[in-house]
């Protein structure tokens, strides 16, 4: 990989964030854009659910409505995630034929998560990859990652918990089968944040810069900060799909 395009950190709302990931994935997959790393945040807070998840099983819709938390269905599989303003999110898109990313799914998670693990370690967080798609510190999740493979591309997006607004956690329903009948407190105990580990806040911009450097190192590429292309900038219909009841409630 020669060139890594970087779209710098910006907050967006849930439908915008997911529509832009899809748009970038399409332009990368069709060869109209180079491999791309995008950094972003969520404002207002949101819950994203995996492509195959049943929304009513995963999300307390009433709580989300009361707290102004948006709900969006992702293009990627995986689990439900609460995204607060303290989270840093990335998306990484490459052509599916790009030899720098393994074809086998587990191998590709390992390769794409490695720069995240490395960035966390650089700031003093002893993180490690945990199959299939998590990054942990002392058995607690600090980063969740999910892939979709479509439009000629691999898109992996994921979270880095720089911090967490625990008061919003009731947005996620706790599956009795998964946590053996325990409450929300158990979700809180299964995750951790950079702020908790280091005892200080790390700014989105600071961590983004480290992440960009680590991705460039990992893929042997030069990172170029860039803007979206003309065709990527305007995807209102795509954004509408992510806001639609049909899409959000399709399972």
């Amino acid at each position: 990989m020669n060139r890594l395009r970087v779209i710098g950190f910006e907050y967006g709302d849930a439908a915008f964030n997911m529509a832009l990931d899809e748009t970038i994935m399409k332009s990368v997959g069709s060869g109209r854009a180079p491999p791309t790393l995008r950094l972003y945040g969520w404002d207002p807070p949101a819950v994203s659910i995996g492509y195959f998840q049943e929304i009513r099983e995963e999300v307390d819709l009433e709580f989300c409505h009361e707290e102004g938390i948006q709900v969006v269905r992702r293009l990627s599989g995986g689990g439900a995630v609460l995204h607060t303003s303290k989270e840093l999110t990335y998306s990484f898109a490459v052509e599916i034929s790009d030899p720098s990313v393994p074809q086998d799914v587990q191998g590709s998670y390992i390769k794409i998560c490695a720069p995240i693990v490395s960035a966390l370690r650089e700031i003093g967080v002893p993180a490690s990859f945990r199959p299939i798609n998590d990054i942990e510190v002392k058995k607690r999740k600090i980063s969740g990652n999910a892939q979709t493979r479509r439009f000629g591309a691999i898109l992996q997006h994921g979270t880095v918990l720089l911090g967490m607004d625990y008061s919003l956690l009731p947005a996620l329903k706790v599956r009795a089968e998964k946590f053996a009948g325990k409450g929300v407190g158990d979700v809180a105990r299964r995750i951790t944040t950079v702020a908790e580990i280091l005892g200080r806040e790390v700014a989105h911009g600071e961590f983004s810069e480290i992440l960009v450097r680590k991705f460039a190192d990992q893929f042997g590429a030069d990172a170029h900060y860039s803007t979206l292309s003309e065709e990527e900038r305007i995807a209102p219909t795509l954004e509408e799909r992510y806001r639609s009841i049909d899409w959000t409630f399709r399972r």
Binding site: F52, L75, G77, Q147, R150, R251
Partner: peptide
Amino acid sequence: VKITGDFFAHPEDGI
């Protein structure tokens, strides 16, 4: 039939 959950399938349409 509906198959739901937090697994992955590639391609997603496979499910």
